[in-house]
């Protein structure tokens, strides 16, 4: 198809516009992370895109260093919340992906659990609040409140439907003859799954995992309700970064936000190749 030059110009202009809208807040956060306290709430001519006096103070501050420019001491540093977020998100993702994949495969190949898709959707029908209150009570009985594995378990359950539905579509799209060919060539059912199906599903698994991980990583509500002191996650901790004397600690929040953006970004880049394939998987039938 031949494209006209004005159309191409228009196309790129629209792409640029969309990018600007999406990237301005991130750029602002990045800039804020390096601003000293005095520039946090600057207005008028003092409001600049580039920090006038770039500093790493914000990063040092959230990891425990105090400074005379800010007469606030943090109750706790960002280290533990980062650990809490990493542990709960990673293990929550593992739970959702492994259980979701197994369930999707069983349903797609053997018709096991025909009511499962609907049942799983029901998990998402109720407002999270309505579900979380009973969960809080149950978790309290099980002594899972304020633990990273208690949180990981809830993350795994909540994101399971997404993992299930994503993987089910991919399993449904996979030609059944490929597995049958392996059966005929002497594989057991389990060998077929590990030798043929899983390797073919690498791309879908990677994209599902990234998707689920981002959902877990950015959760606020569940972590707010299930953790209190020991294992608060990054979003909950970030909300607490304010003081009665100085109000919101913008710079500290921006610095933490910048750090919080790293894992999904790294993960996304690491599986970029698979991601594109995962999203176009259905089109690549031979």
């Amino acid at each position: 198809m031949k494209k006209s030059i004005p159309f191409e110009v228009f196309r790129y202009a629209m792409i640029a516009l969309a990018l600007v809208v999406a990237l301005i807040p991130i750029a602002w956060m990045a800039s804020m992370a390096f601003k000293p306290v005095g520039e946090w709430s600057a207005t008028g001519a003092d409001l600049t895109w580039w920090p006038k006096h770039p500093t790493l103070f914000n990063f040092n501050f959230i990891f425990g260093q105090s400074d005379t420019s800010l007469i606030v001491a943090l109750e706790k540093t960002a280290a533990k919340p980062i650990l809490a977020s990493l542990l709960s998100s990673i293990f929550g993702t593992l739970i959702a992906i492994s259980a979701g994949t197994a369930a999707a495969y069983g349903l797609s190949r053997f018709g096991a659990g025909k009511n499962l898709p609907l049942a799983l959707i029901q998990l998402r029908i109720f407002p999270p609040m309505a579900v979380m209150i009973p969960v809080m009570i149950m978790w309290a009985f099980l002594r899972l409140n304020d633990t990273w594995f208690g949180l990981a378990l809830v993350y795994g359950i909540v994101t399971l439907p997404f993992a299930f539905w994503l993987m089910k579509t991919f399993f449904d799209d996979m030609p059944r003859e490929i597995e049958e060919a392996a059966l005929v060539e002497g594989c057991s059912r389990w060998r077929v799954f590990t030798r043929i199906t899983l390797p073919m599903m690498r791309a879908p698994l990677a994209s599902a995992a990234l998707f689920v991980f981002i959902m877990n990583w950015s959760d606020y509500l569940i972590a707010l309700l299930l953790t209190s002191r020991e294992w608060v996650t990054i979003p909950v901790y970030m909300a607490s970064l304010s003081s009665s004397m100085t109000g919101q600690l913008y710079g500290a929040k921006a610095a933490l936000g910048l750090i919080a953006a790293i894992p999904p970004l790294v993960l996304g880049i690491a599986i970029q190749k698979h991601l594109v394939r995962g999203l176009t998987f259905g089109a690549l039938k031979q």
Binding site: E177, A181, V184, E185, I196, K285, Q286
Partner: peptide, 20 residues
């Protein structure tokens, strides 16, 4: 006998080669 035990080979309509 199961499919692996019959020693019969098959060329499927879509060939079913293992893409990976």
């Amino acid at each position: 006998l199961g499919p692996g035990e019959r020693n019969i080979a098959m060329v499927f309509q879509n060939l079913a080669l293992f893409p990976h």
